[in-house]
Design a protein around this nucleic acid. Structure first.
Lengths: 294, 294
DNA sequence: GATAACGATAGATGCTATCTATGATTGAGG
DNA sequence: CCTCAATCATAGATAGCATCTATCGTTATC
């Protein structure tokens, strides 16, 4: 049975008159009669009582009428909601990032602009983000670069710089800058090797001819920051994270020669259809960091 | 947009696989691809994300999925209810009769047999019943005969006999029978001339050479019965009514020579489609009165 | 790098919704 | 009682579209 038949049916119900209904439907009266007959054969019972010049709806007709109206209501609703998505009045987006701090400001401004769009943000490792993207569990990722996967598109957002971080009472607190090599002799706490930040710094150390030996390894930036407060250790943290935790009791010291920095970028599935929700968020992020966007 | 497209869409959603969906739908894969594309052009946005060998549902697809399921639910419900009507598990019937007493026993037994069918019964004059039938406000009527309307079908149910009725203390209370002519000399109360019973008796009187002059005219059988209790008057009432008001304080006396009687019959619109509800009630009535039914 | 899996595309075909013309029935008016 | 207009049903022709088979392009997998 087809929707067209139900449309015809509703028109006949409205006018209780085949000829008038056919006119409004812009079809010929024989066609309408024929199609209603077809519908009646589908439901197995007459829907109208044709007596003389008048047409009445039968019991079965009344029942079908009610449910047909609901059918069209559902279709209208679906249409409306889809249009809302296209107009950014509705939507969902699942974002994965290597540290919430990377996108927190953008997320807030995006939500102010499009308050009806639901954002789900989770901090995951770069690896987890990629598998999430490939399994379609995640729409977007924000990660450090170095991705070599031809399924994934990468767009640079900004350059992340890494600082030595100590408490204000630490012996190094007054230094203007620290050269990279000095890391070899400073008592450090740092992230575990699962983290791309750690891997990145480790690699730089090898290039500089030594290897990093943190006194303590932890698996969250927040834990590192907390440990710093005991005045004993230094650690290395990304600039954007320090911005998000504007903490006066700590001191950040630039590292020089070489300056460790890394591109932060947006990743999503290559060739994937970007619905308007995703498109809007991507553009918003690029705009936030003054990246030219297409 | 057609329901077929939604069926195809649901199948693809279920399997997330065009070829498998096409197989269960018993159509070819190219047809399915083509039809889904058509649906996507109708809703104005992709419903599936085809990436490599895998197929994912888009946001818009999810929305359409939910509403499509509701659409099919509504259609199922309509179908179910219509089938229930045909199986007499559901239904409505509007009945008009010249006195509820004519069908009370049948109505009760019908309700016991088909408790889910709603009956609306109203006592109206024969004339009102006929216009009700013609205006489609009433499905069935039970009336005294004499109907001359080629729009209406008449099926006899039983023969109604009319009795002289007096209180047990009335001076005529002991008579075995009264001849029709004696009505001329008995102080009577009777229905107004709007009633077919009255018209019928009036006509018989004229045939017998006199005219009826009731001392009081009333417009309900119950009022007549009440008046009788004052021992002063006699009245004429139909047998079926007296059966329904089994009142020991009154006495019914047969009228003879001629015996006034009248066929009670079932009326409904000629050529009208009789749905199963109506058919069941008609057959039930005919059976109740041992009339052969077709 | 060959192969299998899978969806998209192209062109042919058959079903069916649609049309016009006409018939049948009904109701209103002279 | 007859005629005419209104209304829905029927019949046959036609055109549009869903469907098919054959084939291509791309993507994983061994």
């Amino acid at each position: 049975m087809e929707l067209r038949l139900l449309e015809y049916f509703l028109a006949v119900c409205e006018y209780q008159h085949f000829t008038k209904a056919a006119e409004t439907l812009r079809i010929s009266q024989p066609t309408l009669s024929h199609q209603i007959k077809l519908l009646e054969s589908y439901v197995g019972t007459p829907l109208f009582k044709r007596v003389g010049r008048k047409t009445y709806i039968t019991q079965a007709g009344h029942i079908l009428l009610g449910h047909s109206q609901k059918v069209f209501y559902e279709l209208d609703q679906a249409n409306l909601k889809i249009k809302e998505i296209q107009g950014l009045k509705r939507g969902k987006l699942s974002i994965s990032c290597s540290g919430n701090h990377l996108i927190t400001p953008s997320v807030i401004s995006f939500n102010q602009k499009y308050p009806e769009i639901e954002l789900s943000i989770q901090a995951l490792t770069t690896e987890e983000t990629i598998t999430g993207l490939l399994n379609n569990e995640v729409n977007l990722g924000v990660i450090f670069d170095q991705i070599q996967n031809d399924q994934i598109d990468f767009s640079p957002l900004f350059m992340e710089e890494f600082f030595i971080v100590v408490s204000a009472q630490h012996e190094l607190a007054q230094l203007e800058a620290i050269s990279f090599k000095e890391l070899n002799s400073i008592p450090l706490i740092f992230l575990t090797q699962r983290y791309l930040i750690r891997q990145f710094i480790d690699q730089l150390c090898i290039q500089e001819g030594f290897s990093l030996r943190p006194k303590i390894e932890l698996n969250s930036l927040d834990s590192l920051l907390e440990m710093i407060q005991f005045n004993k250790f230094a650690t290395i943290l990304p600039h954007s994270y320090l911005e998000s935790r504007n903490n006066v009791t700590i001191k950040k010291i630039p590292i020089v020669n070489p300056k460790p920095q890394k591109t932060i970028g947006l990743v999503y599935r290559k060739n994937a259809y970007k619905d308007s929700t995703m498109d809007a968020f991507i553009n918003h992020l690029l705009q936030s960091y003054n990246v030219t966007f297409n």
